[in-house]
Design a binder for these strands. Structure first.
Length: 743
RNA sequence: GGGCGUUUAGCUCAGUGGUAGAGCGUUUCAUUGACAUUGAAAAGGUCGGAGGUCCAAUUCCUCCAACGCCCACCA
């Protein structure tokens, strides 16, 4: 009986072996494509064994860099399971395989996490000097990053740590800024005073994607503006009204169009013009609408169409969401009454005052409309006029639509193609300025004369006025502006070997929830900056839910820590549970019961090892086995299952492949083949015994290989402990690993 | 207001143009025999509803219903 059997007399304990196995892999260097053993023309190589042949083909996946502001959650575990599966499979196929790990500083996301931390400490980011705050967040982020890296190791990610990247690495910062500068030169970014979704709590503007809409019931006020009655929910913006708009064909107001009417503004009397615009719905309210271009997206657009007729926008709400009337009406005693009021307070007081003056006709309390909220804090967003940097997306979107349409980039599942096209076709310019400090500062310089210089270094003097009172734009890029360039930045574009070898990458595997935020931007920016698509295929996985179908979130308190359950049941069990349950685009549901089931599977495999091995006899070595008809059929079936699993993995049907190997090992191999071999294994006839053993061993060996991409730890551990599986012309090559066995 | 998706066994979900599958759960049986984190077996579904195409539909088409999601500047 071979020695390693002792090992299998103890129950399988993932905790004991996983770290050890990971170290073995990592130290082998095989995560690094450059260190994969190269086969000589014929025969074996020194370290790789004769079966492994590195083919010239490359295979590359860039890891979606996790936000380094906390621990890994199940979403991360899912991408590890899927990407590691692809990577391990391709590596075993003999491809030069690179899985490039990274981490994202995650600008606004991390800023909000850090804000909460500060809040607990009784501090506030607005009181901390920029440099100091940046240093603190950097420290916080790097420490999280370190934790995540060790967690990725625990999950078994076979990524090349020698190539890891962080979105705030110097070269990444520099190249991200280069892209901005180039886009500025090409007229693809512009600075514009535009309405921006402003979060009063977070004190920053957001992009359209960061706005969440929610239906709310809000009082709709019918008020008198001179002879016209109109409906509005936003009484408090009335001080910023610059016009009244009606539909050009609305007969009710035909005689008013183009005329000025006198209104009582509560802080005096003024005249505003009635204009006609198609955007006004004559059937809503009274068909007349007040125009406040500084605080409403519609009104802003109407103003742009009527610039010559009506005054410039008047801003009456400040960045804290309070009325700042004294900026415009400083001489006005009445304005003091409203100045400094928060929006809702102001609304109430104005309503009372208007009622007093007989200007409030009625209030509709059942009016429902979609409110724009901050996706992080759910507070109402306040549209504010601000100078921000915008990416002109139209020219970028066109080729990005084309490459998906013509199949150069495949999206899986296909249903997301439609979603992608719809978004791309209706794309709006992208606000990339964020009023936070955590991120890559925008390489733009403002002179007090109003001149703008776009470059990295501080200009000595202003190109416009030759003055030297120049300050850098305090804003940072939207984090997606840097992560949107990730594929080529992570591969050290433009001069590296990696860029030449691995760009475009083979698969971009990520969650469907960031199709617009990330995938779409990578496609646009990749084509723009590099002239080539960033990846050939997009594989979108679902969002991990708990057993009540709820999205896991900290605020709901239903977050299951993948590392915690991996600690108990093993990383293999966690991975298998995720893959078995994950069809592309559908949300997998994870529960401890499920994971426990796959831990049982691991135990089963462990016991199979023991059983196969305990029937070994040294004397078999000299015996030529005689396979029965049954044996031959089993070996033939093995080839069939191998082919099927291969086909399913190639077709990205990982869950089907996982089911196949699971079912085969447990219910075909263990329950049938092994059970049926028992009589022969106990036979007096050594030839019969040898044959039965040989068949079992051969099938088991093949099954371990097939299972390895799904459950890498236990398969490798068994492989390492069964030298009989690793024989090479009778000699055991101890260094050989299952990880680089031939598929 | 547009668009998308889901509806299959008690639960969670796969799958397929040719008399329905898995895991978990349930029931019965088996135990000094590799493994109770086990094995053998069983019960359980008119594949949301109504039409249509087809020799044949759970699978393709149309409509309906329920649920869910995404996008969207109607005050």
């Amino acid at each position: 009986m071979p020695k390693p059997l002792d090992k299998f007399n103890n129950p399988y304990n993932p905790k004991e072996i996983e770290d050890k196995i990971y170290r073995l892999w990592e130290e082998s260097g095989y995560f690094n494509p450059d260190k994969l053993p190269i086969s000589s023309a014929k025969g074996g190589s020194a370290s790789g064994g004769k079966n492994y042949k590195l083919k010239s083909k490359n295979f590359c996946v860039i890891m979606p860099p996790p936000n380094a502001n906390g621990a890994l959650h199940f979403g991360h575990a899912l991408f590890v399971a899927l990407e590691d599966l692809m990577i391990r499979y391709q590596r075993m196929r003999g491809k030069k395989t690179l899985w490039l790990p990274g981490a994202d500083h995650a600008g606004f996301e991390t800023q909000t996490v850090f804000d909460k931390k500060l809040e607990k400490e009784g501090r506030n980011r607005f009181q901390i000097p920029r440099d100091e705050l940046y240093r603190e967040i950097l420290e916080f982020t790097l420490s999280n990053k370190k934790t995540m890296e060790s967690q990725l190791r625990k999950l078994g990610a076979s990524c090349d740590w020698s190539r890891k990247k962080f979105t705030l690495d110097e070269d990444i910062i520099s190249k991200t800024q280069d892209t901005f500068i180039q886009m500025y030169k090409d007229g693809l970014v512009y600075r514009g005073k535009r309405l921006v979704n402003w979060c009063v709590k977070h004190q920053t503007g957001l992009s359209d994607l960061e706005v969440k809409h929610e239906e709310k019931t809000t009082p709709l006020y019918y008020i008198k503006y001179g002879p016209i009655i109109l409906a509005t929910v936003r009484l408090e913006t009335k001080f910023g009204d610059t016009a009244i708009a009606v539909h050009p064909k609305d007969k009710k107001y035909k005689n008013f169009i183009g005329k000025e009417i006198e209104i009582d503004t509560l802080i005096g009397k003024t005249k505003i013009k009635v204009i006609a615009d198609e955007a006004v719905d004559p059937d809503f309210g009274t068909g007349a609408v007040k125009i406040t271009p500084a605080h409403d997206f519609n009104d802003f657009e109407i103003w742009q169409r009527h610039k010559n007729e009506i005054p410039h926008p008047i801003e009456v709400i400040d960045k804290f969401g309070k009325l700042n009337l004294l900026e415009h009406f400083s001489e006005n005693e009445e304005a003091k009454k409203y100045h400094g009021l928060k929006i809702l307070e102001a609304r109430k007081i104005i309503a009372e005052e208007m009622e007093k003056r007989g200007l409030l006709i009625k209030i509709d309390h059942n009016y429902k409309h979609n409110a724009a909220l901050c996706y992080k804090c759910s507070n109402n967003l306040e549209p504010r006029l601000m100078s921000q940097w915008f990416v002109k997306t139209g020219p970028l979107a066109k080729p990005a639509i084309e490459v998906v349409k013509n199949g150069k980039i495949k999206i899986i599942p296909e249903k997301f193609k439609k979603v992608y096209f719809h978004w791309m076709k209706n794309i709006r310019d992208w606000n990339i300025s964020r009023q936070i400090i955590w991120g890559i500062q925008i390489p733009a310089w403002f002179c007090e004369c109003g001149g703008i210089i776009v470059q990295k270094e501080k200009p000595k003097k202003c190109v416009k006025c030759s003055g030297n009172k120049i300050e850098q734009d305090p804003d940072v890029f939207d984090t997606w502006f840097s992560s949107g360039q990730w594929p080529y930045l992570a591969l050290d574009y433009p001069n590296s070997k990696d860029y030449k070898n691995f760009y475009p990458t083979d698969v971009m595997e990520t969650g469907w929830d960031i199709l617009f935020f990330w995938v779409a931007r990578m496609i646009m920016l990749g084509i723009y900056r590099v002239g080539k698509i960033p990846f050939k295929m997009v594989y979108l996985h679902g969002l991990v839910r708990d057993k009540d179908r709820q999205k896991m979130s900290k605020s709901k308190g239903n977050v299951v820590d993948p590392l915690g359950v991996a600690e108990i049941y093993g990383a293999d069990a966690v991975r298998m549970a995720l893959i078995m349950d994950s069809t592309p685009g559908n949300d997998p549901i994870i529960s401890e019961d499920k994971i426990r089931g796959y831990r049982n599977f691991a135990t089963k495999i462990w016991n199979i090892s023991r059983f196969v091995l305990m029937n070994y006899d040294q004397k078999f070595e000299k015996i030529k086995p005689q396979f029965t008809k049954e044996d031959k059929k089993n070996l033939k079936d093995l080839i069939t299952i191998h082919k099927k699993i291969t086909k399913d993995i190639e077709g990205l049907k990982f869950h089907i492949a996982a089911h196949s190997i699971y079912h085969y090992i447990w219910h075909t191999f263990a329950d049938k083949i092994l059970e049926n071999s028992k009589p022969r294994l106990r036979s007096e006839n050594i030839i019969e015994r040898a044959a039965a053993f040989k068949v079992n061993l051969e099938i088991f060996s093949a099954a371990l290989k097939l299972l390895h991409p799904f459950m890498p730890f236990i398969t490798e551990e068994i492989w390492q402990n069964l030298p009989i599986l690793r024989r090479d012309s009778g000699q055991v090559k101890n260094k050989k690993m299952l990880m680089i066995e031939k598929w």
